[in-house]
C-alpha cells in the first residue's frame, strides 16, 4: 500500500519529444505542410472570435499538436466558430480553417 505523506510527486511539465508519439503530428504536417511555415506572429489569435471570449488560442494549440501534445487539442479546436477571420490575416497564407478541421479529424480520439 502506498504511503501518503501529505504531498505527491509533481509531474514534469516539460514537453518530452523523446517520449511523445509524433506519428499524428507527422500525418498532419504531411497533409498540410504549410502549417510549418507558422512564424508565431499571433495575428490569428488576435482576431479570433472565440479567442476573445474563451481561453481558445489557435496558435498555441496547433504548436502543441506539432510537438506531439495532443491532449485536449480536439476539445480546444471545437471552440473555433470557423468564421475564417484568422485565414484573412495570416501573413504566411496558411489555411487556418483547414488546420482546425484537419486536427479535429486526426485527433478526434484523443
Amino acid at each position: 500500500m502506498p504511503v501518503h505523506f501529505g504531498y505527491t510527486i509533481s509531474k514534469p511539465r516539460a514537453i518530452d519529444i523523446d517520449h511523445n508519439n509524433l506519428r499524428k503530428s507527422d500525418e498532419i504536417l504531411r497533409e498540410m505542410p504549410e502549417l510549418q511555415t507558422c512564424i508565431g506572429c499571433g495575428a490569428c489569435t488576435a482576431v479570433c472570435t472565440a479567442g476573445n471570449l474563451t481561453q481558445f488560442n489557435f496558435r498555441k494549440v496547433h504548436t502543441l499538436v506539432r510537438r506531439g501534445e495532443y491532449q485536449g487539442a480536439y476539445e480546444e479546436m471545437n471552440k473555433c466558430m470557423l468564421c475564417g477571420k484568422c485565414r484573412l490575416v495570416c501573413p504566411r497564407g496558411i489555411n487556418t480553417r483547414g488546420v482546425v478541421m484537419l486536427i479535429k479529424r486526426k485527433l478526434g480520439d484523443f
Binding site: 516539460a14 514537453i15 518530452d16 523523446d18 498555441k60 501534445e69
Partner: peptide, 15 residues
C-alpha cells in the same frame, strides 16, 4: 538538450 518552447510556454527537452 533543454529549452523553452516559448510559443507554447512550456519547457521542452529531447535527445
Amino acid at each position: 538538450i533543454k529549452a523553452e518552447d516559448t510559443l507554447t510556454g512550456r519547457p521542452l527537452r529531447m535527445s
